[in-house]
Design a protein around this nucleic acid. Structure first.
Lengths: 373, 373
DNA sequence: TCGACTTTGTTAGTACGCTTTATTAACTAT
DNA sequence: ATAGTTAATAAAGCGTACTAACAAAGTCGA
């Protein structure tokens, strides 16, 4: 009887700076990721197509595709329609029964939303439960269990978008809304569920979703999530930047009006005190909206210029953002940056009902487990 | 006679997001980089040490080290002094005759500085020639050739720090100071010198130097280069971020005072019109310096918060920056960011005579050719 | 002083993943 | 029918890192 030696659990290295050694298996995992990426991005295609697109040989592609079919990710879809020279190609595409992710959204006050999401970002099942500051993490695990039982499909992993500062291991360093400090959220859930769990800041995760499933420029994007608070996420090459402080979601707490309104973070005049949905809904004229847009542009300009980002997304209640506010953000950015940058930056709105945090949590799983951006 | 098949020229993949396939040779190059990184960072050590630190086996390390000794990068330095159990370790370290880089600095007006720089960032030879807007690139190549002839050591490659927006291939997309637009600087020099050539924005390259050879936090750093203009560079994980627009050096052209002084970029009131060395030297009281520091903090805050950067470096004429200006930058940052961030960010000065552009150009070569950060 | 132990570094053999070369399969063009 | 083209598989080889085993050179304890 063959004894399989237990390998230390390791997610795909694709997309991360390799910090340690690289084994042959890492190369293979990366090549699997290349194949899945092509199929997810451009739909079903033949093995020969994949060989051309990845510059691997047809032999290697056949081998990898066989493995991915075996594991249920891919499925043969018959020969390519139409008439061509040579032997007709057999199309290979993502399977309808491919593994799915469980996605959890902790960003809302008072409740927790969970969903089963497939690898294309489609929400299959959705459930919402009460969850407030102080509630036990077991509530989260409970929802995940119910979601797991709601589908016959294999679960690739669990993704969580949570407010606060979250490190790369899924530990919530600080989350005032939830009253958490140094909570190893991912590790606890992983232990109780027996599944890989990945957690990220809610607005970072939303940015990942817009890049993975939306219209985001996956080379570089800045997303601002405007809800009860304001969060932000920056993506470069499909990866959410967090930096050594992991504070990348906290753009809402940049002070734009020292001495202004009191903010929950302790400071006064944070961007969030102007731009949150509650604050915006109190505005009753365009002059005030224009004022907020100008303030916002002042915060965005240094980031956009310094990072060379061309795609800025405002994710929030469209009715509060469109019109005067959006126009003044565009105008402000155009005025405050180099002409070279100004000509290339676009600012656009994405409506709240896109549920980017939920699908982004799934995208996080897809990325960390499969290396697909 | 053995025919060596020509491999497509490829620099190390270490540190870049792998975009295509990964061959065994790529893994090997990465492992060579791990070894060199350890030796550069922590000095000479034994093969067994390297095995422990990289988690490769002693066998593999011996193999790779033999190769690196063969190529002249490393050298055996005798047994480790002191008395220990077991067989005495043979120390291996960077060779005194290891290959060097040719570094070129185009950031100054009117002249071009070149140097031969070793892998530790030490300047071995240095030469300066006239170079102004409109001069031929052959002047640059000429200096590189003279520098190459000035040393018997092997040349690893050529690095260039240049003002303007530079893409990843070393093409200068736009550089007003030099009157360049879409000049494929690296490609032209590489063709005429027969050496690998890497080019980057001058302030980005300076940031790389501070991370590689200075005290920079290599997880994340923002460097502002304050000279005749103002440029910036952001490093995350030892890599300079440039984003899709490649404009990351251009933080100096964020408008902080709409309607202010005319800037060379066409806009009015750019950060550069306040903060450049010429502008600063005109200030004669601390109130004005404090005003500039506050403006600067306003630009830095969104970047620091959004990227979660803990290390901010002002690289310029110390006598103009220390005191009131520096203090007000620190105070502004502390006031305008989350307490969590404010407690962790440090702002420090690096004097101009550190020649960061020159050594940074060398660091760029070291990184691109050897994968050493 | 001598054997036991520890640590370093090498040699020999194995596993894995990709490549190249060759072959079979299935179609179009003439 | 025959040639040409494209798809996919089969077989053999190469590079890289691994495990196992061992030699070398010292320390340590009795």
């Amino acid at each position: 009887m063959t004894q399989i030696k237990e390998q230390p659990r390791r997610s795909t290295t694709a997309g991360r700076r390799p910090v340690g050694k690289v084994l042959p298996g890492d190369a293979r995992r990366h090549h699997r990721a290349l194949i899945l990426q092509q199929l997810v991005d451009h739909g079903a295609r033949s093995r020969a197509d994949l060989a051309r697109e990845t510059s691997l040989t047809r032999v290697t592609i056949s081998d990898l595709v066989a493995e991915l079919i075996e594991e249920g990710f891919l499925i043969e879809q018959g020969t390519r329609p139409g008439t061509h020279m040579g032997k007709p190609a057999t199309l290979v595409g993502m399977s309808e029964d491919a593994p799915v992710a469980i996605a959890l959204d902790l960003s809302a006050d008072g409740h927790l939303t969970g969903a089963v999401v497939d690898l294309d970002g489609k929400i299959l099942t959705r459930e919402q439960v009460e969850f407030s500051r102080g509630d036990d993490i077991a509530v989260i695990a409970g929802l995940a269990v119910r979601l797991r039982e709601s589908t016959p499909r294999r679960i690739l992993g669990v993704g969580i978008g949570t407010p606060g500062i979250v490190d790369g291991d899924g530990t919530v360093i600080i989350a005032p809304n939830l009253g958490w400090e140094n909570v190893d959220l991912a590790a606890q859930l992983s232990a109780s569920l027996g599944l890989p769990v990945h957690a990220g800041n809610d607005s970072n995760v939303a940015a990942v979703a817009e890049s993975a499933f939306g219209a985001g420029d996956d080379q570089g994007m800045l997303l601002l999530m405007i809800g009860s608070g304001v969060g932000g996420g920056v993506l470069i090459d499909g990866r959410a930047l967090s930096g050594p402080l992991m504070s990348s979601g906290e753009i809402g707490h940049v002070v734009v009006d020292p001495g202004g309104r009191q903010c929950s973070c302790g400071n006064r005049g944070c961007l969030e005190t102007f731009l949150s949905a509650p604050a915006l809904s109190l505005l009753d004229n365009d002059d005030d909206r224009r004022h907020v847009g100008t303030k916002l542009a002042t915060v965005l300009t240094p980031v956009v210029t310094t990072l060379g980002i061309a795609d800025v997304v405002l994710y929030g209640p469209t009715e509060l953002l469109e019109g005067a506010l959006l126009e003044s953000v565009r105008a402000g950015l155009a005025q405050q940056t180099l002409p070279f940058v100004a000509q290339r930056v676009q600012v656009r709105l994405v409506p709240m009902h896109d549920e980017l945090v939920l699908t982004g949590a799934a995208a996080l799983v897809r990325y960390r487990e499969l290396g697909v951006v």
